[in-house]
């Protein structure tokens, strides 16, 4: 029994020692993002977040930007006679509202990322697709097309640049563009080291996106006090119409 305990203790000590050794490629990744919060206000038209950090000199880095997970119902179009209209509804779960993969300059990083299971195409493994008359792969492809058209899903080649860092390390920088259709929530930015095509250590930072000021007030009112919102919209329109009528002494048209 004592022998078994001694062996177990030795094994544990060994595991602790192994985990304390820096991951392949040397020192861990350093990562900073700025700003760490994005405000969706009246004049919001998208935002840029700067991603910088340092990695071991021999390594490369890929950056993933992942939005909050969501589950939504989607309308799938089909042909009815000469027209295209909704043929069925399908539920998709575990879909990030935004996904971007920023890759470095140089190699064929799309191929490398594919090999590591990174990129938009690889979200297929985590997305759960409800019952549908179409194959799940087709639904996923349509879904990716929709998200890509909104600028929410993207694999961006040559987005990460390198310069010399401190202590012989490599400094990386990238700019991540959040489109205007970005919704409120917490977004995660992961920087993953790549050492000779193998996945190394990674570090994450969070960016909060939140509606503020007038946008938040209007959104809250339209959702929670719908009647008040409707009456207010009419009152404002009547005031605006009367004001412009006075301004132009208009007889108007309809």
């Amino acid at each position: 029994m004592r022998g078994f305990l001694a062996v177990t203790c030795l094994c544990c000590a060994g595991l602790v020692a192994i985990s304390a050794v820096p991951a392949r490629g040397g020192a861990p990744v350093e990562l900073a993002v700025g700003p760490s919060a994005i405000n969706v206000g009246t004049f919001f038209s998208g935002a840029e977040v700067s991603v910088t950090g340092e990695i071991p000199a021999a390594d490369d880095v890929v950056i993933e930007v992942v939005g909050p997970q969501s589950g939504d119902l989607y309308d799938v179009k089909g042909r009815f006679g000469p027209f295209w209209m909704t043929r069925e509804k399908v539920q998709l779960e575990n879909t990030p509202v935004l996904y971007m993969l920023l890759m470095p300059q140089g190699l064929d990083w799309k191929r490398v990322a594919d090999g590591l299971g990174l990129g938009v195409e690889h979200l297929k493994r985590q997305v759960s697709i409800g019952p549908s008359g179409l194959p799940p792969d087709d639904i996923f492809e349509m879904f990716v097309n929709l998200k890509s058209s909104e600028g929410l899903y993207r694999d961006v080649p040559e987005a990460v640049t390198y310069t010399a860092g401190s202590g012989g390390r490599r400094r990386f920088a990238a700019v991540c563009r959040f489109p205007s259709s970005t919704t409120a929530g917490t977004y995660t930015i992961n920087a993953t080291c790549i050492d000779h095509g193998a996945r190394g250590p990674s570090v994450s930072r969070e960016v909060a996106v939140r509606e503020t000021g007038f946008v938040k007030m209007v959104g809250d009112m339209a959702s929670n006090r719908r009647l008040v919102y409707g009456i207010s919209a009419v009152a404002i329109a009547l005031l605006a119409g009367s004001f412009t009528g006075l301004l132009f002494k208009s007889r108007g048209s309809h």
Binding site: G230, A233, A237, F248
Partner: peptide
């Protein structure tokens, strides 16, 4: 219709309505 759409469907964007109004009143004159 505006009040009912706001209440039932939550689809009235009065910011959009105001932007259009600014242009349309000037254009109409």
């Amino acid at each position: 219709v505006t009040i009912m759409q706001a209440y039932s469907n939550r689809t009235v964007d009065f910011v959009l309505a105001l932007l259009l109004l600014i242009g349309s009143t000037l254009g109409a004159q």
